[in-house]
């Protein structure tokens, strides 16, 4: 979504336009859900956090500034809700064990796309991500999966861009190590995507 379109939608959203909400919802919902699901690793909880994120948006539309950037705003709310959830449950989600193919929709049989998605490589990445501390996983998901640039990801995490770069560097090293330790001798996960 280009900035001009975003500002137009924001203006309409601040006036309570349902169609503008739908457009924003369609643009960000899947990325937000993917971010939350990979962060919390429980479909039911991710759905609840997602719903609360959208409700926060509509409850605060009249307080948004004219130049609010919707992506970082939504990911910040989602991230803060996750932090509150973890605190309230005193749960360190990064220490959880088994990996389930959580990207499958519970209502339907897996589509060909979803079946493809369940390949061994993705299972390994998922295991590696799950083994990381929450702060490292969060920054990798924001930059790598959600596609936020460093500046926006830093805003979402409430840290400076420099601190974000350092945290991302550490997270990359941890993920690489986790992937290598989960790789059978003779295989290289990174080699599968390196030209």
């Amino acid at each position: 979504m280009d900035r001009e379109t975003e500002l137009g939608l924001l203006d309409r959203l601040r006036r309570g336009d349902e169609a503008a909400f739908d457009a924003v919802y369609d643009a960000f919902n899947q990325r937000l859900f993917t971010f939350l699901l990979r962060l919390v690793r429980r479909r039911d909880v991710a759905e609840d956090l997602l719903e609360e994120t959208w409700l926060r948006l509509v409850k605060h539309t009249h307080r948004l500034n004219e130049d609010t950037r919707l992506g970082p705003w939504l990911f910040t709310v989602a991230r803060n809700l996750h932090v509150s959830y973890v605190r309230s449950r005193l749960l360190e989600v990064s220490a959880t064990g088994g990996v389930t193919p959580f990207w499958f929709s519970s209502a339907d049989r897996p589509s060909p796309f979803e079946t493809t998605a369940a390949r061994e490589l993705e299972r390994r990445i998922d295991r590696a991500l799950a083994s990381l501390p929450a702060a490292s996983r969060e920054v990798l998901l924001l930059v790598g999966v959600a596609g936020l640039d460093h500046s926006d990801a830093a805003d979402v995490c409430g840290i400076t861009p420099e601190a974000l770069r350092q945290r991302l560097h550490r997270a990359r090293a941890l993920l690489t190590r986790a992937l290598e330790s989960d790789t059978r001798p003779g295989e290289s996960v990174l080699g599968e995507v390196t030209p």
Partner: peptide, 22 residues
Amino acid sequence: PLLRLLRGLPQATLDPSRADRI
């Protein structure tokens, strides 16, 4: 390559009934 690998992960699919409810 590592971030490209993450970017290539499949997007999660929200249950349609839940999406409608939201």
